[in-house]
């Protein structure tokens, strides 16, 4: 499986710029997720790779074949790109049986009849739908349809697998199972995969690398851990789970660290990176903040709301006019309390 290289992709619809210089590389066998809010250009990017949107500018190449190069006037038709795509709606052809759907890409490639039949059976087994070949799409459940769509996408087999929110029509339970199962299949087949979602859990659980998109640009590119722990941009931090943002003045700390000072935290918050200016904003995840009764260490605070959420409590805490959200597994009574932000919990964001 080859790698995908995308450079400086631009696309506008009238006055609206939808892709504003997208560029990234997907390495061989890698699972890369495009993550972002609705309308940020994920589908447009994916459809540009697939050949259903012509970018105004940019280069797309897979392996050593150039799919799109606007400056050279190259724009390969979708049917010659040899990709596998799973659409959000599955796009199963209702007038064909499951086996005919899956066998369609093979029949176009003039595969030998028997070999094609065997391949269809093999792929259907792979997606755990062996024996369903004679059914029509409307006779299958949503989860089964989704797996047929996947089987069809990997049948020929494709150079690259593209998935556009393939789980969004499944209910929450099924979605989690499908997630694990797809990831396993992708790893065992070694498929180079681009996955589109706006669901952060999905992105974190499945990806080798996450590209966070916003307004037609890529804001952050990294492994799930990197993106989660070092979001870099305020938008990314906020999009991947909840975050508290604190702004104050910065001073250099020991050993290349910094200290952020503000009225609510007069002793400062230790940040594990060198200061970049006199003022800065840090992001702190609610579960990284320590909250306890009035005798605990830290600064004075007051718990104004506590909500029980099963595996943890969600607290709204007031600290010197600031409102901070804290997640903690233990009970803290409403009223006076102490709060502490341990070193390493806060990271700078733009």
């Amino acid at each position: 499986m080859p790698e995908i290289r995308i450079r400086n992709l631009r696309k506008s619809f009238g006055a609206a710029t939808v892709l504003d210089g997208i560029g990234f590389t997907v390495r061989d066998k890698e699972f890369v997720t495009l993550l972002g809010p609705s309308g940020c250009g994920k589908t447009t990017t994916l459809m540009a790779i697939a050949g259903f949107q012509s970018p105004d500018e940019g280069v797309i190449a897979v392996g050593d074949e150039v799919f799109v190069d606007r400056s050279a006037g190259v724009d390969l038709p979708a049917e010659r790109r040899d990709l596998g795509i799973v659409f959000q709606s599955y796009a199963l052809w209702p007038h064909m049986t499951v086996a005919q759907n899956v066998g369609f890409p093979l029949s176009l490639r003039k595969a030998d009849k028997r070999a094609a039949r065997e391949r269809v059976a093999e792929v259907l087994d792979l997606v755990e739908l062996g024996g369903h070949g004679d059914r029509y799409p409307h006779q299958l459940s949503g989860g089964q349809q989704q797996r047929v769509a996947l089987a069809r996408a990997i049948a020929h087999p494709p150079r690259v697998l593209l998935l556009d929110e393939p789980f969004s029509n499944l209910d929450a339970k099924l979605r989690e199972r499908a997630r694990d199962w797809l990831k396993q299949l992708q790893t065992s087949l070694g498929l180079t995969t681009v996955f589109v979602t706006h669901d952060q859990d999905e992105a974190l659980a499945m990806s080798d690398r996450i590209l966070v998109m916003h307004g037609g640009r890529i804001l952050r590119d990294g492994t799930p851990e990197e993106v989660y722990r070092e979001p870099g941009a305020r938008f990314v931090a906020e999009f991947l789970g909840q975050c508290n943002f604190l702004t104050g003045s910065v001073a250099a700390g020991p050993a290349g660290s910094s200290v952020l000072r503000m009225p609510a935290f007069p002793d400062g918050i230790t940040v594990g990176a060198a200061p970049r200016g006199p003022e800065a904003t840090v992001a702190v995840r609610p579960q990284d903040i320590e909250l306890d009764g009035p005798d605990a260490p830290g600064v004075d605070a007051s718990v104004i709301e506590a909500v029980f959420l099963g595996d943890h409590y969600r607290y709204q805490v007031r600290v010197a006019g600031l409102r901070i959200e804290v997640h903690a597994p233990h009970t803290v009574a409403c009223g006076p309390a102490r709060i502490r932000i341990p070193p390493g919990a806060a990271v700078f964001v733009d």
Partner: peptide, 15 residues
């Protein structure tokens, strides 16, 4: 008929 049905066909290699 959703356009994705055509697109799925093109993606499979059909003109």
């Amino acid at each position: 008929i959703g356009v994705e049905l055509d697109r799925a066909g093109h993606a499979a290699g059909a003109g």
